[in-house]
Amino acid sequence: MGKVLLGRYIPGSSLVHRMDSRSKLILSFFFIVIIFLANNWESYLLLFIVTITSILTARVNFSFFIKGVRPLIWLILFTVLLQIFFSSGGTVFWKWGPFTLSYYGIVNGIYVFCRFVLIIFMSTLLTLTTAPLEIADALEKLMMPLKRIKVPVYEISLMLSIALRFVPTLMDETTKIMNAQRSRGVNFGEGNIMQQIKAVVPLLVPLFVSSFNRAEDLATAMEARGYHGGEGRTKYRVHYWEIRDTLGCTFFVVVFIILLFIRQW
């Protein structure tokens, strides 16, 4: 379990992989925002072309994206069905009590489905091509303006990176405790819901206690290594904004402008 890859990051050397995490984060957010501007089939087609192009540039197997959609499929279907049966307008094909099946409803349902898929594909692309730690770094950089209003940006980003670093350690520990409790006769994942919830208690309590002990040890070690707050520290990890990042941003701005032209006003 300790060897589990955090997030779904797949190392690679494609253009998308080598882009700065800041530009990737900004562009993903930007893309998700402009998805909501699309309102006709031409604009959705454009966004799909952009997404597919980005995925092809990243040279990541397409199956990972399908896997990204799968856990959310029920939520998506539910929302789509709501859209189809509860929005009205245009030709009505069928009506039963509060449910109407209309032309407008079907189109809206398809659009909602497209939105979901686009958002999931783009955010999956971000997490597949960017190491979690780099995302944490990007967040730190992008939160910098918040320092003016006394947000402890350095501390937040250190907390994030330590949290990421300890995920495998705590997973190992969980496995160990589970095995220890199993050997004492605890059944995990069996019985009714109440029994399953009860089985989690002997897992959570030791895990909680040991996490606190670890936190205390780590705090002592950090202090002994001279950590006294985020101010005045230098940085070992650096990121450079390169031509490809500027190019990437330009590409998305162009997409945005085209979208403004072809969407329905």
Binding site: L218, A221, G226, T234
Partner: peptide
């Protein structure tokens, strides 16, 4: 100082960053 538990004093995400942690603190 080197403490007892190898896991609980590893701050960095990987080896080189952990070694750099003290240096970063010392600016």
């Amino acid at each position: 100082m080197v403490f007892q538990n190898p896991d609980n004093q590893f701050v960095g995400a990987n080896v080189e960053e952990d070694v750099a942690f003290g240096l970063e603190n010392a600016a």
